[in-house]
Design a protein around this nucleic acid. Sequence first.
DNA 1: CAAGCGTGGAG
DNA 2: TCTCCAAGCTT
Length: 365
Amino acid sequence: MTTEEILKEWNISGFQQDLLDWYEDQKRDLPWRKDRDPYKIWVSEIMLQQTKVDTVIPYFNRFMELFPTVEALAEAEEETVLKAWEGLGYYSRARNLHQAVKEVQENYGGQVPANPEGIHQLRGVGPYTAGAILSIAFNIPAPAVDGNVMRVLSRIFTIYDDIAKGSTRKLFESIVEDIISPNNPSDFNQGLMELGALICTPKSPSCLICPVGKHCAAREEGVQALLPVKAKKTPPKLKDMKAVVLKDNDGNILIEQRPEKGMLAKLWQFPNLEKSSEDLTDLEEHLRSQGLEVQLSEKVHEVRHVFSHIIWEIDVYVGELKGIVDSELFGKTKLELVKKSDVDRYPFPVSHQKINDFVLKKGDF
DNA sequence: CAAGCGTGGAG
DNA sequence: TCTCCAAGCTT
């Protein structure tokens, strides 16, 4: 049967009631479900993008202690926000959220806009997050189609479109507009996602205890394991890197800030470059070009770190900073000499936390 | 539209 | 060790 034929004889209000009853009974007690503060819903939705609930919970709780309100976050330093995000990944989320919250503080007096136009133009708020905030916080019947919702609905209506394609999301949004509960869009959307997280899971879904199993075409046909259809993404590419932990005469450590755009933007790291020679010349030249004279050791460690699209294999060196040869050049760099105990104050990506752990915390350097 | 953008956990 | 993710957005 086609999706249209299924929908025509499908029991919409029965599905709504079964889903809402199950959600009311089985929903998890999560920190962002204690009230409907739009700011908290917003922050939680940004953190939950491509990130599991169990990972988010401690970050969310710390974030709310540091920045309890729109005003508090708007007034915070960006580096403080990035430090609170350290380890959570996709750091543009933190920078975009910070910018958007400043705009809300400036343009809306700190009140999160409760309409589609206002909310969608905020940095980092795309179609899913806009719908999630509108429905969950303001109970407005807007679709909030994430991976869970596409998986659940692809099974219920046996939809074989590739959910990795952007255009497919629109199809699911139009379906949600048809079936969303007009009285309780907040719990309806959350119920769909909760069902995807707890019952209608990617692998071996629990169809036997599914509260909406009688509405599901995939279960009827026994094809739930074939859905959803999702194109495979290309595997990450290997990149050989070098990093060096440098100490000066006073025991200070040299760190550098990454560029404002691109991967790990504005985070800090130990001087880091793509490997271009087997010996030490590439490192020495890289540092000399920034005005630094150094004495390097042989490789002391190796770090492997997998990103979503790249794998870094980092050869780690240590060395001594002999002097700043060209202080004018050094002044233009994003390098800083900091006390060993202060390295932890800066936001580091996990790849370089691994270096920090090995060289500065476990090692005797 | 496809690619770029992180991380830690499950199987 | 390897594969596949998990409440996506921006360019």
